[in-house]
Design a protein around this nucleic acid. Structure first.
Lengths: 201, 201, 201, 201
DNA sequence: TATGAATGAGTCTTCATTCAT
DNA sequence: CATGAATGAAGACTCATTCAT
């Protein structure tokens, strides 16, 4: 309806996308404000009109990087299927999914490194992982309730699940050849789920 | 011959320790050569006598950070005990162990982020994880041979094991409260080993 | 004709008052056009509609700062009373008078400093002091004519009178404790007038 | 004796002299660090090695500008001659004296303007004037003690003396034609001293 | 080997001014 | 007349690296 649907939101998005691209390509340090400006097709002044500083851009980007996909995961809690199946869906960071974030992973690790020095960064990332952890705990609890899973602490198990996925992602980032995505689900991830399952002792 | 066997080695170590401390505290970016110089109690010229550049220090540090413990792990391959027991030993990054590296973790993630842009960094870190992976694969293969483990791909299983440990370390780094080290071994890590074990179907 | 006689004059005044306040508070340098705009409650475009540039505002302000009171002083020339009395009135920058300009003094000294580099500023301030000087010279001449004052050069005496007032104002600005306004008139200023008076040698 | 008589002191002086010259020529605002660097014949890095910031240079300059000549004035307290004579010496800012500072006056007024916003500046300038004030008070007190001066408050009288000199300097700075240095001593300054003197009522 | 003053290209950031709406 | 987003030239300051002593 309105012909000016908050251009500000548009501009900020434009800048963040440019920054994300530049940061991913060059790293936060080597990325110059001029690079971002060029990538965004804006002037330096305009960039600073929307973001007070490079740090402000970094802060905003952290939320972008550590925010996506949460909705999908949250839907899993109330989705149909066995707990195993749903966990499997969560832990299956299918190739095409991960590839989507390939460029962002480097940036993500820079942010993680930053977490120990900047409380804002730390809290943002914490919030992200805590949400994830709660979701998985719930699903695992459902598996316990239904007798599908053997005796285990749902919080520790959820930790293992997220850890497994994050750890494999890290290894893949460092050395793609180490990770065979085709067999991963039926092997690496499966063993964890097998470990969850009730065992007919 | 002389009683000054290698002052050079001594000095380099002195510098790297100072750099490690400064990098861990400030991050690679914010760390100034002057900070390292001050921490090491040397002069700027002396530092540059031993290291050509800041990048040279970074490169040398990566080896320091991604090199420890390997010997211990390698001994596990030919050690006594069941495969499960030995894997358990590997995956038990006991509190005091991890805590030793607490300050270095931030630096480690900076290096990981760097891996996508600097091949030297990448290769160093890859070498580290490949050695680890091979060790675990061997142990798991031993477990397969002895019938202790059920049918699984030893490479993928080893990937899962390293991934789990690295992932939990990352989560702990970001949010220590998420990780309960006391119950971890009997819960999070155990589920993986349970998944490895042959199941009396 | 219209009931909107001169909104322009109104707006300019509004802007200059805002600028005066901001300049006095922050100094000409640190004062931003945005500060003035905010203080005036206008938009940037509007400000630039009325003043071509920051320099234009500065120029206009100089006149404001170096313009007040002149009428009062001019009336002294043709006022009743002895020359001494009238000079005394001029030189008595009563507390409440000076206090009124307290905030402006800093700005005034910035303008004075500017005088050596900008001829427009210089001429404005010169005009101000010349008018003052002429007025005092006239009054002193009247004192000479009436035999009230001893032999002296009216121009130099007027210079001394203005100098004394301006100098004390400067000292007060820098260090208020140095100036005791209560006794000032009966001491500091009186000695000058005493010096003017014919001495029964 | 030593071949390196604190080069640091030398360099700082070199920088301050360059800065003084540039500031006087362009004003503090328009003066660029690059101008100072060029004037001093140094590199930018070197300038910043000795002065942390432009403000640090300004602060150091204020002391330079408001520090000279004090010794001469202090000697007047214990010098020979009548109080009048000695005051006359103080107040005679002979042309060649003032001219020496002609270029600095603009800078001086910038500093005075700054005094209201920066306490360090304020205190430095205050210290300067207070020393002056004390010296003159003492001389005037000597004049009172010897019966040379009539009844007056020495503090207020000293204030008048300094004010007169500073005020005339300001007027001269703004409008040199207003001040006739040749007749000044025998006219403008003399009236003040006449005002001080005991009058045979 | 050791020192630390010197260098200057490179950065982030500011802010007076403009102009399409 | 009014608005405020957009511009980009300019400026203060940094810091890895060098080199004369």
């Amino acid at each position: 309806m309105s012909s000016k649907p908050d251009l500000s939101v548009e501009r900020r998005k434009q800048i963040l996308e440019a920054a994300e691209s530049v940061f991913a390509r060059l790293g936060i340090n080597r990325a110059r404000m001029d690079d971002i400006v060029a990538e965004a097709g804006l002037s330096k002044g305009t960039l600073y009109w929307y973001f007070k500083s490079k740090d402000a851009i970094i802060a905003a980007l952290i939320e972008r990087v550590f925010a996506g996909e949460m909705r999908e995961a949250e839907e899993l809690v109330s989705a149909d299927g066995s707990a195993s199946e749903r966990l499997s869906i969560f832990m299956r960071p299918a190739v095409h999914e991960i590839r989507r974030f390939e460029n962002l992973m480097s940036l993500g690790y820079e942010f993680v490194a930053l977490a120990s020095r900047r409380s804002v960064v730390r809290e943002t990332i914490r919030g992200y992982y805590r949400r994830y952890h709660r979701i998985l705990s719930q699903i695992i609890q459902q598996g316990l309730d239904s007798g599908e899973f053997g005796p285990l602490d749902p919080d520790d198990a959820a930790l293992a699940a997220i850890g497994l996925v994050e750890g494999i992602a890290l290894l893949w980032f460092v050395d793609p050849e180490l990770v065979n995505w085709d067999t991963l689900e039926h092997n690496a991830l499966k063993v964890l789920l097998d470990g969850f399952r009730r065992r007919a002792t």
